[in-house]
Design a protein around this nucleic acid. Structure first.
Ligand SMILES: [Zn+2]
Ligand SMILES: [Zn+2]
Ligand SMILES: [Zn+2]
Ligand SMILES: [Zn+2]
Lengths: 132, 132
DNA sequence: GGGCGATTGAGAATCATTGTCAAATGCCTC
DNA sequence: GAGGCATTTGACAATGATTCTCAATCGCCC
């Protein structure tokens, strides 16, 4: 090991608040939206702290982060296993989808061309039944 | 038709310059990098114009745009047919990849959940052989 | 050459995100 | 239960990509 283990996050009021907020909605939301939500609930948490917390949670794999069609980072508490998303571009309604074949395909493409250390992003955008 | 056809883009010195720049490299580059490239070549083109031109080309499907891992929009002249990318996260080396099965899969996922008007993004990031 | 809508460019304006740094807070030890 | 100390926070400044503004230019057609 070359680096010191950062250890688990220290539990603070702010981090708890963000975690609770994340548990309270099912669509993808931006840091600013989550900050607003906290404010409405009467929780005082600095915007910078919301950004920092979301980033750490994303690094730890506890939330999923993706970029909306206009490039903003948005976050959502998801299931543990690797999956992708079907996102309504109007209301944000999200469905988690899994595709083992897709996973295999990305790996084989990377291998075929000698790429190492591979990651991938795959999102599907559309209009959900309610918004169509 | 509900809207007036905007018609083809008027050919200007600036747009030609951007098109030539795009033809001169094979990796994905940001608007700013393309602007720098133009400047080095002695072409005077405003940064805003580079942004506008790239956007129009992307809308017209003449270039591909994707977001690098840190969220910046990057552009590349690609082949006509629908495809995805295997991108080196260090040097930008890019391989176009096609996967009919993936296309079918995204369509069927969307259909299964009643999503209409579907689009998808799929990119693979890794370290190319030269950078590994 | 003139008319006119499309295009350009320099700079200001936006806006998400990150950096700064002093003050506040968990946690551990005594 | 106080003290020491590294972590965390928050108000605010700073950054950086992208977009907007609008007068000056340009391409196209007569
Ligand atoms: Zn997810
Ligand atoms: Zn996957
Ligand atoms: Zn492409
Ligand atoms: Zn490389």
């Amino acid at each position: 090991m070359t680096s010191t283990d950062p250890g688990p996050l220290r539990p603070t009021r702010q981090r708890r608040a963000v975690a609770e907020a994340l548990a309270s909605f099912a669509d993808f939301r931006s840091a600013q939206e989550i900050h607003d939500l906290l404010r409405q609930r009467g929780e005082k948490v600095g915007l910078a702290t919301v950004y920092r917390t979301l980033q750490k949670l994303a690094d730890a794999g506890e939330v999923d982060m993706l970029r909306s069609e206009d490039g903003e980072a948005v976050y959502r508490r998801c299931s543990e296993s690797h999956h992708h998303h079907l996102v309504c571009r109007h209301c944000g309604a999200t469905v988690e989808v899994e595709g083992p074949a897709v996973e295999r395909w990305t790996r084989s493409m990377a291998a075929e061309h000698g790429y190492a250390d591979v990651s991938h992003t795959l999102e599907i955008f559309g209009s959900c039944p309610a918004c169509s």
